[in-house]
């Protein structure tokens, strides 16, 4: 059974390493500051006992006030999982650091979120539309798009 790790415990470890990186933590998820996302992700991937080597999925959710990007992390070695979230504010040019450098599996998923939700991932090597064509205006998965 894949153990869903509690966000609180991980948050404590993250705070210890990168003070101020965690915004809030709950039983099933962990919200990190967007500026420290990259560092936190790197820590989660390599820290002994955690080793989240497998990025299951990335999703974006539009909550009108902010966009939330949800990272489902899994460790194949320890068979546990964690949900990490990051928020970005502003509807004109929301941006988050990319995690492609850590997990290559993020490549297409970040492009998809950029395509449909309009969140830019800084540091992504090839950030362009994936399912819609170049030149399409608007971001269909946003709640204010129709």
């Amino acid at each position: 059974m894949t153990v869903a790790l509690s966000g609180g415990e991980i948050a404590a470890r993250l705070e210890e390493r990168f003070p101020g990186s965690v915004v809030e933590s709950g039983q099933d998820s962990l919200l990190v500051k967007s500026e420290s996302l990259r560092a936190a992700a790197g820590f989660l991937k390599t820290a002994p006992g955690l080793e989240f080597d497998y990025l299951t999925a990335i999703t974006g959710v539009d909550y009108y006030d902010y966009f939330e990007v949800v990272y489902q992390l899994t460790s194949i070695r320890h068979n546990h999982s964690l949900v990490v979230k990051a928020r970005c504010y502003g509807r004109d040019n929301p941006a988050l650091p990319s995690v492609v450098g850590l997990w290559k599996g993020a490549d297409f998923q970040e492009r998809e979120i950029y395509d449909l939700m309009g969140i830019r991932f800084e540091g992504h090597p090839n950030l362009k539309r994936i399912v819609l064509w170049d030149g399409f205006t608007g971001y269909p998965l946003r709640k204010d798009y129709l």
Binding site: D53, Y54, T56, I76, W103, K104, G105
Partner: peptide, 20 residues
């Protein structure tokens, strides 16, 4: 390593030797 890193799953992941 590549298979895990690119989030492969199913037969593609298992063919690379990951019992997942």
């Amino acid at each position: 390593e590549q298979a895990i890193n690119i989030s492969a799953s199913g037969p593609v992941l298992r063919a690379s030797g990951v019992k997942w």
